[in-house]
Simulated scan of single mutants.
Amino acid sequence: MDRKTFLKKASVGLLIGIPTVSLLGCSGSDDNGNPNPNPNPDPDPSANCLQNGTNSSVSTTSGHTHSLSVPKEDVSAGVEKTYMLSQAAAHIHEVTITAAMFQSLQSNNSVNATSTSQSGHTHSVTVSCA
């Protein structure tokens, strides 16, 4: 095989291989729908959602992030609720905290959720006890 043929075949392989590996790496989930697949095995003993409320962490996606506030009154009520994330990059996302997630927060465990899609992307949201 000459150099020109080798470079053509290597380029085609890279153009096909990289997107394929990327797609395969992101397919599927191992949390089986559990809103809290990895509860903190060593929670902060002073953290208490019912008394202190929550802290939230929103992933940076597309070069920006948003914020979320979940009041302790909502944790206590334990009823599914949809929140609007703060506005950033000229758009707003929503995230739903289910009754099962609130139950987990009442037990002082963190929960994870995914925001709605806006401007072609979503954000991962983690709510933990303060």
Rank of each mutant, 00 (worst) to 15 (best):
H64F: 06
P41A: 06
G33V: 05
P41R: 13
P39K: 08
P39D: 08
D30W: 09
D44E: 07
T54A: 07
N36M: 02
S67R: 13
V70D: 01
S62T: 12
D42V: 02
L68V: 04
D42R: 08
A47G: 07
S62N: 14
P41E: 11
G28T: 06
G63F: 09
G53M: 02
D44Q: 03
D42E: 12
A47P: 05
P39Q: 06
T65Y: 01
T61I: 12
P37W: 04
S57Y: 13
H64C: 07
N32E: 09
D44S: 05
L68N: 05
N34W: 00
P43M: 03
V58D: 03
N52L: 11
H66C: 15
T54Q: 09
L50V: 15
N52V: 00
N32M: 04
S67D: 13
G33W: 04
T61H: 06
N32T: 01
T60N: 15
G63A: 10
S29T: 10
P37H: 05
V58I: 15
P35E: 09
P35V: 07
G33C: 03
H66D: 15
S59G: 09
S57V: 09
S56Y: 01
P39Y: 07
P37K: 04
T54G: 11
S29G: 13
V70W: 11
P35W: 13
T61K: 10
L50Q: 08
T54K: 09
L50F: 00
G33A: 05
H66A: 14
T65L: 11
L50D: 06
D44N: 15
P41C: 08
T54W: 13
N40W: 05
H66P: 12
T54F: 10
N36P: 00
G28W: 11
S67P: 00
S56W: 01
G28H: 02
A47M: 07
C49F: 10
S67H: 07
P43F: 02
D44H: 01
T60D: 14
V70S: 05
N55I: 02
S69A: 08
G53R: 06
D31L: 01
N40I: 02
L50E: 12
G63E: 04
G63P: 09
P45Y: 11
S69C: 00
N38K: 10
N52R: 12
A47E: 13
H64K: 12
L68G: 06
P39I: 03
P45C: 04
Q51L: 15
L68Q: 03
P39E: 10
S62R: 08
G33Y: 06
D44C: 00
D42L: 01
H66G: 14
S69I: 14
C49H: 10
S59D: 14
L68P: 03
N32V: 00
S46A: 10
S69Q: 13
P39W: 10
T65G: 14
V70Y: 08
N55Y: 04
P39F: 05
Q51F: 01
N48I: 08
N38P: 00
G63N: 05
L50H: 00
T60V: 15
D30A: 11
N34P: 01
